[in-house]
Amino acid sequence: MQWNWEFTYEIMPRMLWATLNTLMAAGVGYAIAVVLGLALALAQRTPYRGLTLVVREVVEFIRSTPLVLQIFFVYYVGPQYGLNLSPWVAGMIAIGLHYASYLSEVYRGGIESVPKGQWEACIALNMTPVKTYFRVIIPQALPPSVAGMGNYLVGIFKDTPMLSVIGVAELMHAANAIGGQHYRYLEPYTIVGVVFLMISLPSAGLIRAFEAWVRRKLGMR
C-alpha cells in the first residue's frame, strides 16, 4: 500500500474540521477540570471530616478506574436512570471529572507547599478562610502547580480520542469514519498522529514559559 497524496488532500478539510472539535473537547474538558479540581481540592481541606472523607474516596475511585469506562458509564448508564445526555455533554462530564480528580492532587501539592507562616499571617490579619484561600494561598500555590497543570492539559488533549467510542466527532472519530468509507486507514491515522505531535511537542516549552510568566506576574522569583 502506497501513500496517496491525492486522497490526503481530499480528506484534509474533514480532518482539520475534526481537529477543531478535538481542540474544543480538550479545551472545554480542561476548563471543567480546572474549576472542579479546585473545588475537589478545597473540599478536602474543610473542617468537615465527613465531606473530606467522601471527596477523598471519590477522587481515589476516579483515579483508579479507566477513563474509557467512565465515558461509557456516563453515556450508557445515565439513560437507564432517565439521564439522557448527548455524546458531547456526556464526554465533557466524564473527561472533565476524570481530570478534575488528577488536578485536585496537583492543587493539593501546591497548597501544601505554601509556608505555614502565610496562614498565620492571615489569622493575624483576621482574614476569613475564604479570603485566606483566594487572596493569599491560591495565588502562591499557582506557580508550583503550573507544571503539573500543563502536563494534564497535554494529557487531556491526548485522551480526547477516547471520546470517539461514544461518537464525539473529534479527530479519531473522523479518521475511523474516513477509513471505513474508503478502506484506506494509512492516511487518516497518519494525519491524526502528525496533528497530535505538532500540538503536543511545543507545549512543554510553552508551559515552562507560562510558569516563568506567572512567577514574574506575582512578583515572585
Partner: peptide
C-alpha cells in the same frame, strides 16, 4: 481577636503583593 496584631520572626509578608 480583631484587636490583636502580630509580627513574626520570619516576617510572613505576602510574596505576591
Amino acid at each position: 481577636r480583631a484587636s490583636i496584631g502580630m509580627c513574626f520572626q520570619h516576617f510572613n509578608l505576602f510574596p505576591h503583593m
